[in-house]
Amino acid sequence: MNILVCMKQVPDTTEIKINPETNTLMREGVPSIVNTFDAFALEAAARIKDKHPDSKIVVVSMGPEQAKAALKECLSIAADKAYLVSDRVFGGSDTLATSYILSNAIRKIEELEGKFDAIFCGKQAIDGDTAQVGPEIAEHLDYPQVTYALEAELDGERLRVLKEGQDGNMVIGVKTPCVVTFTKPSFDPRYPTIKRKMAANRAEIPTLTSADLPDIDAARIGLKGSPTHVKRSFVPERKKSGVKIQEETDGESAVKLVQLLGDAHVI
């Protein structure tokens, strides 16, 4: 099975700084990681490869040159090959433009790596939280999609996907090629091994630029090609956290509560 995993490098912090002029994220000086949900997608691919060792896992990311560090992280965990999609003209793309560029890049990578049976994504990035890029890739490619997946396994020509639902989980059979977006499963992603990590340190990661993707319509990419624009970004006002009362016994906690309420003249 030939699996492509889409990965985004995201800032590893809750203190996300935003450029007040462009209303976009400021990446400088913030440590970066593989988006958590993308790591789950990679683990799901790795579990398929555990059972079907002839499988190939290719990982792709769109982003600046520094995203190669996150791609190398994926190589050290499970990926066989990695591609970076990077060009100044792609900068400022919203989800629709990003998914458009990525779907073009996927077609290009397929020329080099063979056709993908499945495209795995995280359900959303922990920075933007849109959960749109995966489903949009499916639409651009006209593939069936399953979202909020927990696990996936190969079932002949189809994938059997365990999907999280509001009222319970579902098992869905989906024809390949398809797009599956993953949420947090019950297991942790595997660790990189020393051997893979050292190989990843030496890996060459090819970069695909707009020159490699001649079919792209320039009017549909970048800030100008994006139908949505961020009007304003702001840090919401934090509500004051309450007082935690945890005494030795419930009784003592109750006494403390009454005392605090009394002190505040509430009762």
Binding site: S76, D188, Y191, P192, T193, I194, K197, M198, N201
Partner: peptide
């Protein structure tokens, strides 16, 4: 070198989590 730092990172993560 870079390999040593990678190895240290792997060991640190394993030690902290496992």
């Amino acid at each position: 070198n870079e390999d040593h730092e990678s190895i240290r990172q792997i060991a640190r993560e394993f030690a902290e989590k496992e």
